[in-house]
Computed example of a mutant assay.
Amino acid sequence: MRRLLSALAVTSCLLAGFPAMTWGQTLPGLTLFSGVKNENQLPFRLDFGGQTNSWDRYILRIPEKKMKLAVAQFAITYPNYYKGTFDPKKVEVRVKGKKVPLSEVKWNKESRVLEIFPQEPVPAGNKVEVVLSNVKNPAFGGTYYFNCQILSPGDVPLLRYLGTWIISVS
């Protein structure tokens, strides 16, 4: 009976630890003193843990409630102290889980912006995921603010702020 109880205790501790490990690199949860209002924080996931100096896949999500307008261009800006690299050939946009054809992806290193142009405007009111594969994380850890801006079709050519992904690399 004693062995059974100790095995049960160890098993329950292991099982209780799994959710904490698997959710470790998703939406930042409770973020104190970020300077970004809670309603402007966007959810994300780092598929390979966000480890320094390693390869990763960033899945940057935009909830339906944020997609009030159709989108002809996504612009993702990041801070000057982020020293990671992106592969413009490995960028995807998914709407409701389906890949959207892209006409062009431009990475302007000097301006620190990743511009994504879908072939057809992404319709309003849909959940969107921007998938950045083959990302080389920076050599040094830190917290990085990735801002999402959009351009609507036929709109005045000014980008509109949608929100911020607060990404930690450790």
Rank of each mutant, 00 (worst) to 15 (best):
Met1Cys: 09
Arg3Pro: 02
Arg3Trp: 13
Leu5Ala: 11
Leu15Trp: 11
Ala16Arg: 06
Ala16Gln: 09
Gly17Val: 06
Met21Asn: 06
Trp23Val: 00
Gln25Met: 02
Gly29Glu: 03
Leu32Arg: 08
Phe33His: 14
Phe33Glu: 14
Ser34Leu: 01
Gly35Leu: 12
Gly35Asp: 11
Leu42Thr: 07
Phe44Met: 11
Leu46Tyr: 02
Leu46Val: 05
Asp47Val: 08
Phe48Tyr: 11
Gln51Gly: 01
Thr52Trp: 00
Thr52Val: 10
Ser54Arg: 14
Asp56Ile: 03
Tyr58Glu: 05
Tyr58Leu: 11
Ile59Cys: 11
Leu60Lys: 09
Lys66Gln: 11
Val71Lys: 04
Ala72His: 05
Asn80Pro: 10
Asn80Met: 01
Thr85Asp: 06
Thr85Ile: 01
Phe86Ser: 02
Asp87Trp: 01
Val91His: 03
Val93Lys: 05
Arg94Tyr: 14
Val95His: 05
Lys96Pro: 05
Lys98Phe: 13
Lys98Asp: 15
Lys99Gln: 09
Lys99Leu: 08
Val100Lys: 01
Val100Trp: 05
Pro101Met: 01
Leu102Lys: 08
Ser103Cys: 05
Glu104His: 13
Lys106Phe: 07
Trp107Phe: 13
Lys109Trp: 05
Ile116His: 09
Ile116Gly: 06
Phe117Leu: 06
Gln119Cys: 07
Gln119Glu: 11
Glu120His: 13
Pro121His: 04
Pro121Asp: 07
Asn126Leu: 02
Lys127Asp: 10
Val128Pro: 06
Val130Tyr: 01
Val130Gln: 04
Val131Ile: 14
Val135Tyr: 03
Asn137Ser: 12
Asn137Gly: 06
Ala139Val: 11
Phe140Ala: 15
Gly141His: 10
Gly142Ser: 03
Thr143Leu: 05
Tyr144Asn: 09
Tyr144Ile: 10
Phe146Glu: 00
Phe146Pro: 04
Asn147Pro: 02
Asn147Lys: 15
Leu162Cys: 10
Leu162Arg: 07
Gly163Phe: 03
Ser168Tyr: 00
Ser168Gly: 13
